[in-house]
């Protein structure tokens, strides 16, 4: 049986937060933090930074709950994805030079492994690096549509682009990944195409 607190909508909780209701804030945190932590992690690829992003997003909500306007017909989660995504992009911009050098190191390390049997963790690391190398908007589009399971329309709203533009971002992200991961020997179809078999 659903508890009474589960029946309260997100929008109602935000309204209560605007009245400084700490209980409502705690409830909203408990309800969605896991979801938004995953979303933030997929953008920044670091658990501590992901936590910072989620915390910043919630604190912004606490300080300015009026920034969410349900009368515009936007769901709370869609709006909050936008806040989290933007903060995550800011976070990655702050440390971009460092990431680039790290990525180059990883690439140098992984290249000789291409023809060898890769462990699952190696494969994970290479996949993560390839995704992190994507331009931020392509990465956000991929995360929102592929991993968060949002519709193209919702993802387009979050990224503040049209649906066509979002589809283009997604297409380019997948093509870049295919090329990148294929070059590292992680995709069979790509390897077959290269060998002509």
């Amino acid at each position: 049986m659903a508890s009474n607190t589960d029946q309260i909508s997100d929008e109602e909780l935000v309204r209560r937060i605007s009245e400084s209701d700490h209980g409502a804030f705690a409830q909203l945190v408990e309800r969605h933090s896991k979801l938004f932590f995953s979303a933030a992690y997929r953008m920044v690829s670091n658990p501590e930074e992901a936590e910072d992003v989620v915390q910043d997003a919630y604190i912004k909500l606490w300080q300015r709950p009026e920034a969410f306007d349900p009368s515009k017909g936007v769901k709370f989660t869609t709006w909050f994805y936008r806040v989290v995504t933007n903060l995550a992009i800011d976070q990655t911009r702050k440390r971009k030079p460092q990431v680039k050098s790290e990525v180059l190191d990883v690439m140098a390390d992984k290249a000789p492994l291409a023809d060898e049997q890769l462990s699952e963790s190696d494969e994970q690391a290479m996949l993560e690096d390839a995704i992190q190398r994507l331009p931020e908007r392509q990465k956000a589009a991929l995360n929102l549509c592929f991993y968060e399971g949002l519709s193209n329309k919702e993802a387009a709203e979050i990224l503040d682009v049209g649906v066509k533009a979002l589809e283009s971002l997604l297409m380019r992200a997948k093509k870049s990944l295919k090329d990148d991961l294929g070059a590292q020997g992680l995709l069979e179809e790509d390897k077959k195409r290269k060998t002509g078999s």
Partner: peptide
Amino acid sequence: MNNDLDTLLNKR
């Protein structure tokens, strides 16, 4: 080895 990109992406 992964057959396609989506299979690989799902391993993330």
